[in-house]
């Protein structure tokens, strides 16, 4: 959790106020972040850069505007596509998946099953 992406103490703002640590899954993999912070921030802190692949060119996209306007950071969250992760608060147990076009990235399902021990 204490990765280099998180600011421990800021010269002006001091110690950032954050929610309690919660676990969520990213493409089936368990990760942790701070409750209530945008999903995108928890992912960024964990080093995840790619949120989705585009429909036409299959190019990677990630955080761009960070305020819910540009929609580059959309992912499939709890099964619903096009969720703006930069303005969606992280909650315990969220299922976050890379979006490919408008569906979860293929192969994730297998990954998840593997993680769950169902294969």
């Amino acid at each position: 959790m204490d990765t280099s992406e998180r600011i421990a103490v800021h010269p002006i703002l001091g110690v950032p106020e954050k929610g309690r640590q919660v676990q969520f899954t990213y493409n089936g993999k368990t990760m942790s972040g701070c409750e209530g912070e945008p999903v995108a921030m928890a992912l960024k802190a964990a080093g995840v850069m790619v949120h989705r692949y585009t429909k036409k060119r299959h190019e990677p996209r990630g955080i761009f505007c960070a305020i819910g306007r540009c929609t580059d950071c959309v992912m499939v969250v709890d099964g619903v596509p096009n969720i703006r992760t930069c303005v969606t608060p992280l909650a315990e147990g969220m299922d976050v998946r890379t979006q490919d076009g408008v569906t979860p990235l293929a192969g994730d399902k297998a990954d998840k099953e593997e993680a769950d021990g169902t294969i």
Binding site: F64, C65, R69, C70, T71, V74, N82
Partner: peptide, 8 residues
């Protein structure tokens, strides 16, 4: 006309 409605 996409997701961001031309805001970018």
């Amino acid at each position: 006309m996409g997701l961001c409605q031309g805001q970018t």
